[in-house]
Design a protein around this nucleic acid. Structure first.
Length: 474
RNA sequence: GCUUCCUUAGCUCAGCAGGUUAGAGCAACUGACUGUUAAUCAGUAGGUCCCUGGUUCGAGCCCAGGAGGGAGCGCCA
């Protein structure tokens, strides 16, 4: 028999029908003649209220119904006399799983996110995390929807990679060698020929290079999978394991790339607004409460939902790195770090451009080639590359992308300049020898998107089980 | 990796100038209550003051080292 969940019961209430509700107890309110139990099954932010008249359920069972317990309620769906439209008039309750109220850590009160991070196994049962993970799902789904509708193919790039040339950061080693007693070469170095793959392997830091191989065959591809960085990054915007979306498109130049990035993000935010209204409403209220705690100067001028609508309704500001440097040099604000053409912009500079100067998402292009990756297409001026960074308020860089260098000689020279051995990326270089073409792509940090859409402050709270330096529980 | 702040009851936090038996709110428990909305009211119980060492007649408070956490920076997505 098909099970019915709370979301469906509340959306299409069949008054006077017999129903079974299963879920976890949020609160129980008891008085002499009647007991009220609020139940959540996580299918929606809303709970359903079960009403137990005196003597319908034994004291023994009632005493086991505490916050956190899992119960199965048989009864009739009736119109409610209280604040909600409908409620369940209880006939029978089975306790499926008890939760000792002396020990169950999630109480019907506000908890700090720091505390809940230590209870990552139970935090999905809270309103906030339920909402976040439902939105996370919706956004994932929307990503596949968007690309499928636009003729992209989902390409599965490897998680274990034999290449260490992606240049995106420190990598986690993958090995089956005995770490206490590894085989050694004559020089005394570890002999990776003896390792599982017969060479040194790592967890991927980016699917881009393999993604390009796909684009140069299928025209438009995207990847969406986990990515690993062993950087010792201790911030609220970095994870050691995160999910990245990386589209790569043949015959796209930098402008096409920007157009796609902007349209894509707007679609995703709009999808959340249209499909996660209840959860966003809840998070909007949470966001406002949070903002009220902050000093006036730091408060967001807009509510969460207003912020999201603003992004969908306004064009992103596009400008070159050189133009940005000019704006920053002429700004009245004193920066901690000086602005100079040729050095990378600091967080404070990016924040100024996005949050103070333009007050909307910004796409910066044409960075000096020295501060960008080897695979980016050199611009006509010979000094900059056709790179683009999409900067978001409160998040910073949410997308990094570029038109890719499609000229074999130039690409080979750039790789050599930054010390990448030709043999390690021979397969990548070969695509420029055989049927090369202009192409472009970008990487979108999924958790950074979820951070923006949910209005949360720390990236560790938008992934169910965060991986960060010194932190890999659960 | 760097800078800075924090660690006291299950949770959120207070605590003086270094001075006896360490406090509050919420949660829990017991009871009361004719339908509650994180119910209300009354009561009960709950502590390795993060760890180790030091200074002192005396340390939750001062000093040193360590562990864990937050915020910011760098690296990036």
């Amino acid at each position: 028999m098909e099970k019915v969940y709370i979301k469906q019961i509340l959306e299409e209430p069949k008054i006077d029908s017999d129903i079974v509700v299963r879920g976890w107890v949020r609160t129980k309110r008891q008085s002499k003649n009647v007991t009220f139990i609020n139940i959540s099954d996580g299918t929606t932010i809303h709970t359903i209220q079960a009403v137990v008249e005196a003597d319908t359920v034994s004291e023994e069972i009632l005493s086991k119904i505490n916050t956190g317990a899992c119960i199965e309620v048989y009864g009739k769906l009736i119109a409610s006399q209280g604040n909600q439209k409908v409620e369940v008039k209880v006939e029978k309750i089975n306790v499926l799983g008890e939760a000792d109220p002396e020990k169950y850590p999630i109480q019907p009160k506000k908890h700090s996110f720091e505390f809940l991070r230590e209870k990552a196994h139970l935090r999905p049962r809270t309103n906030t995390f339920g909402a976040i993970f439902r939105i996370r799902h919706a956004l994932s789904f929307a990503i596949h929807n968007y690309f499928n509708d636009h003729g992209f193919f989902y390409l599965h790039t490897p998680i274990i990679t034999g290449s260490d040339a992606e240049g995106a950061g420190e990598m986690f080693k993958v090995t089956t060698l005995d770490l206490k007693n590894p085989p050694k070469t004559e020089n005394g170095e570890i002999d990776f020929k003896e390792d599982f793959f017969g060479k040194e392997t790592n967890l991927t830091v980016s699917g881009q290079l393999e993604g390009e191989l796909g684009a140069l065959a299928l025209s438009k591809i995207y990847t969406f999978g986990p990515t690993f960085r062993a950087e010792n990054s201790n911030t609220s915007r970095h994870l050691a394991e995160f999910w990245m979306i990386e589209p790569e498109m043949a015959f796209y130049d930098l402008v096409d790339n920007m157009d796609l990035a902007e349209d894509f993000i707007k679609y995703l935010v709009k999808y959340a607004l249209e499909n996660c209204a209840d959860d966003l409403w809840f998070l909007d209220a949470r966001f406002s409460d949070e903002e009220k705690q902050k000093p006036m100067a730091e408060r967001s001028e807009m509510g969460l939902i207003d912020k999201l609508k603003f992004v969908t309704e306004n064009d992103f500001q596009r400008l070159t790195y050189t133009e940005a440097v000019e704006i920053l040099k002429n700004a009245k604000k004193k920066f901690q770090f000086p602005v100079d053409w040729g050095t990378d912009l600091q967080s404070e500079h990016e924040r100024f451009l996005v949050e103070k100067h333009f007050k909307k998402p910004v796409i910066l292009t044409h960075y000096p080639k020295e501060i960008k990756a080897f695979y980016m297409k050199e611009a006509e001026d010979g000094k900059t590359v056709k790179a683009m960074d999409v900067l978001f308020p409160g998040i910073g860089e949410i997308i990094g992308g570029s038109q890719r260098e499609d000229d074999y000689e130039k690409l080979k020279n750039r790789a050599a300049q930054v010390g990448i051995e030709e043999e390690s990326i021979w397969w990548y270089l070969e695509t420029r020898q055989f049927g090369s073409c202009p192409h472009a792509g970008f990487g979108l940090g999924f958790e950074r998107l979820v951070l923006f859409v949910t209005g949360m402050g720390n990236i560790r709270d938008v992934i169910p089980f965060p991986r960060a330096p010194k932190s890999a529980d659960f």
